[in-house]
Computed example of a mutant assay.
Amino acid sequence: MGGKAKPTKHSAKEIAGKVAAATTNKGGGKAGLADRKGGAAGHAKFKCPSCGQQAPSIKSAEMHWDSKHSKLPFVPGDWSDTHAEHGGVTTAGVAVKGAAKQKTVHELAKTKTGQEKLKQLEQEKLKQQF
């Protein structure tokens, strides 16, 4: 029996948050940015020869093949290894989290780099008008 106002079990939201925190790459700097984007080949290693769908492992590639191309035989050698094409593993991180939200004009105006970005955006808008 739990104590006063204390849940006896973890909530699904709490567990999901812990899993996300443990498996999401949040490294900073240019290397972290490149890693979050997945490098040159992305995080998936294998690419389907038929439809181009990417798969992280040969096992998931086989599952994809069985569900989408079941009439054809599965040949692992036909799948292209995108990491090998780009010179080995392209990332060092664990997972990818979506891109950061776009900063508002007010947030950009607070820093020098943000102010420069605002000037570039204004110049692009002027070019598009004419």
Results as ranks from 00 to 15, higher is better:
M1Y: 11
G2M: 01
K4I: 09
P7N: 04
K9A: 08
S11D: 04
A12I: 09
A12T: 06
A12Q: 10
K13F: 12
E14N: 08
I15W: 00
K18V: 14
K18P: 02
K18I: 14
V19G: 07
A22Y: 04
A22W: 05
T23N: 11
T23A: 12
T24N: 06
T24S: 10
T24Q: 04
N25P: 03
N25M: 09
K26I: 05
K26S: 12
G27N: 15
G27T: 06
G27Q: 15
G28D: 13
G29C: 08
G29T: 00
G29Q: 11
A31R: 04
L33W: 15
A34E: 12
A34Y: 08
A34R: 03
D35M: 02
D35H: 01
K37Y: 08
K37N: 10
G38N: 01
G39D: 05
A40T: 08
A40S: 07
A40M: 13
A41M: 02
A41Q: 00
A44E: 06
A44L: 04
F46V: 01
F46P: 00
F46L: 03
K47P: 00
K47L: 12
K47N: 07
C48N: 02
C48T: 04
C48L: 06
S50L: 14
C51L: 11
C51Q: 07
C51P: 04
G52R: 02
Q54D: 04
Q54Y: 01
A55I: 08
P56G: 12
S60N: 07
A61L: 00
E62H: 12
E62P: 07
M63G: 14
M63R: 07
H64G: 08
W65G: 15
S67R: 10
H69E: 11
S70T: 04
K71D: 14
K71V: 10
K71H: 13
K71A: 15
L72W: 12
L72P: 00
P73I: 00
P76F: 06
G77F: 14
G77Y: 12
W79C: 07
H83V: 01
A84T: 04
H86R: 05
H86D: 03
G87P: 07
G87I: 01
G88V: 04
G88Y: 13
G88S: 07
T90N: 03
T91R: 07
A92G: 06
A92K: 13
G93W: 01
A95G: 15
A95V: 07
K97Y: 03
K97H: 02
G98P: 09
A99M: 11
A99N: 14
K101Q: 06
K101W: 01
Q102F: 12
Q102I: 13
T104K: 05
V105R: 06
H106Y: 14
H106K: 13
E107S: 00
L108V: 02
L108N: 09
A109S: 15
T111I: 06
G114R: 00
Q115K: 15
E116A: 13
E116W: 01
E116I: 02
K117H: 13
K117C: 05
K117G: 06
L118A: 02
L118D: 05
K119R: 13
K119P: 13
Q120L: 05
L121I: 10
L121H: 11
E122R: 04
E122Q: 15
E124A: 14
E124K: 10
K125Q: 03
K125M: 09
K125W: 11
K127R: 15
K127N: 03
K127H: 11
K127Y: 09
Q129V: 08
Q129E: 15
F130K: 09
